[in-house]
């Protein structure tokens, strides 16, 4: 691809990957958000973080922002694809209730990152987001910058099967993509993490190994056992009223399912059944969180 010049950006000061995160932290802290930390378990997206899943339920206002390392085993490309990877970073913001000027806030956050919106093509493209395993859905957009999806923006309508009266706005930044844009890199592994090291220095080998593991080596029998055991454990913990531990076991089933899927070990027949099982756990967790299951039991 010799002909290609890098992404062209008009920026004030080119931010490194870590600088980018710091700017977002500062911006959203300024908006009154709790700056939280990543959850310490494997998950497919920041939506799975309890600070998203549980806090989106109920009427209490909530503002939070955090980085969430996210795992999508089927997106592994052995570090051969410039945009896709099986493990990457999301920057997650939740604003409840969603403010009337939430899109303007978001655009301002892009400006603080150094993106000159006048010089680029910004689009909000319909995206009906749904997480069948979490029993959650919402409406919103993929945000495109010159055709590159840099953010997912969602107004949650339902979480854990519960209709939300108090709507949260979820902003999920694709950090690598924004960094590629800002730094004019063609390949995510070429992103400057700081002045000395690249994203590839930190993650390329891990990505190749991770892809090989997901697609070739993950022991499907073992993963299936993980799935089943975590599933049973989650149910048991729910019955014992231990909400977060039960939810953590749900996270484990979800990741085991994704690995089985990447190995092609989930047949089309059983896929809906497995997903429905996890969703059912998510619903029970959500109901327990808002005390709905108590009401049910009492009535």
């Amino acid at each position: 691809m010799g002909r290609r010049t890098p992404f062209l950006m008009k920026t004030k000061k080119v931010a490194t990957f870590q600088e980018l995160i710091m700017r977002l932290e500062k911006f959203w802290a300024g908006q009154g958000c709790v700056i939280a930390q990543p959850y310490d378990m494997e998950m497919g997206a920041g939506t799975f973080h309890p600070f998203t899943f549980f806090k989106a339920l109920g009427p209490e206002p909530w503002k939070v922002a955090f980085v969430q390392p996210s795992r999508r085993p089927t997106d592994g490309r052995y570090a051969q694809n410039p945009l896709r990877a099986q493990r990457y970073y999301q920057y997650q913001v939740i604003l409840k209730p969603s403010p009337g000027d939430v899109l303007d806030l978001y655009l301002n956050s892009l400006r603080t990152l150094g993106i000159d919106l006048k010089a680029h093509d910004l689009r909000f493209v319909q995206d009906d987001w749904e997480s069948p395993t979490l029993g959650a859905w919402g409406l919103g957009w993929e945000v495109w910058l010159d055709g590159l999806e840099v953010t997912q923006f969602t107004y949650f309508q339902q979480v854990g099967g519960i209709d939300l009266e108090h709507v949260s706005a979820e902003i999920t930044y694709g950090l690598e993509r924004i960094a590629m844009f800002l730094q004019g890199k063609l390949d995510l592994y070429a992103i400057q993490w700081n002045e000395d090291l690249t994203y590839g220095d930190l993650h390329k080998k891990e990505e190749i190994e991770g892809s090989a593991y997901n697609f070739e080596h993950a022991d499907t029998q073992l993963q299936r056992r993980y799935f089943e055991e975590a599933f049973a454990q989650s149910k048991k913990l729910l019955n014992e009223g231990l909400l977060l531990p039960a939810y953590e076991q749900l996270l484990k089933t979800s990741h085991a399912f994704n690995l089985l899927d990447a190995r092609g070990a989930v047949s089309a027949n059983e896929r809906p059944t497995l997903i429905a099982g996890v969703r059912n756990l998510a619903k029970r967790c959500a109901e327990r969180y808002i005390g709905k299951d108590e009401e049910k039991r009492r009535s």
Partner: peptide, 16 residues
Amino acid sequence: PTNPAVVMANVERIIE
């Protein structure tokens, strides 16, 4: 945009 060529060059990278 202020310079359409910049935008189009970026779109080209994404389709590739």
